Measured scan of single mutants.
Amino acid sequence: WKITIYDQENFQGKRMEFTSSCPNVSERSFDNVRSLKVESGAWIGYEHTSFCGQQFILERGEYPRWDAWSGSNAYHIERLMSFRPICSA
Rank of each mutant, 00 (worst) to 15 (best):
W1A: 10
W1F: 15
W1N: 15
K2L: 11
I3L: 07
T4K: 05
T4V: 04
I5E: 02
I5N: 01
Y6M: 00
Y6P: 00
D7W: 00
D7G: 05
Q8I: 03
Q8V: 03
E9F: 05
E9N: 05
Q12E: 12
Q12I: 06
G13E: 00
K14Q: 09
R15W: 14
M16R: 11
F18Y: 14
T19N: 08
T19K: 09
S20W: 05
S20E: 14
S20D: 15
S21E: 11
S21P: 13
S21W: 04
S21C: 11
C22N: 03
P23H: 07
N24Q: 03
N24E: 03
V25W: 02
S26R: 09
S26P: 08
S26N: 12
E27W: 06
E27T: 08
R28H: 09
R28L: 10
S29T: 07
S29F: 09
D31V: 08
D31F: 10
D31R: 09
D31H: 13
N32R: 10
V33G: 01
R34W: 01
R34T: 02
S35Q: 01
L36T: 06
V38M: 01
S40L: 13
S40R: 12
S40H: 11
G41F: 01
A42I: 12
I44C: 15
I44M: 10
Y46M: 00
E47T: 10
E47A: 10
H48I: 00
H48K: 15
T49H: 10
T49R: 15
T49W: 04
S50H: 15
S50F: 09
Q54H: 15
Q54S: 12
Q55T: 08
F56I: 14
I57N: 09
I57W: 08
I57K: 11
I57V: 13
L58S: 03
E59R: 15
E59Q: 14
R60V: 15
R60A: 11
R60Q: 15
G61F: 02
G61Q: 00
Y63S: 02
P64Y: 04
R65C: 13
W66P: 14
A68M: 08
A68Y: 14
W69H: 06
W69L: 12
G71V: 12
G71C: 10
S72H: 11
S72R: 13
Y75G: 15
Y75Q: 11
H76N: 11
I77F: 11
I77H: 12
R79S: 14
L80P: 05
M81P: 04
M81L: 08
M81K: 11
R84Q: 14
R84P: 00
P85L: 03
I86S: 12
S88F: 06
A89H: 06
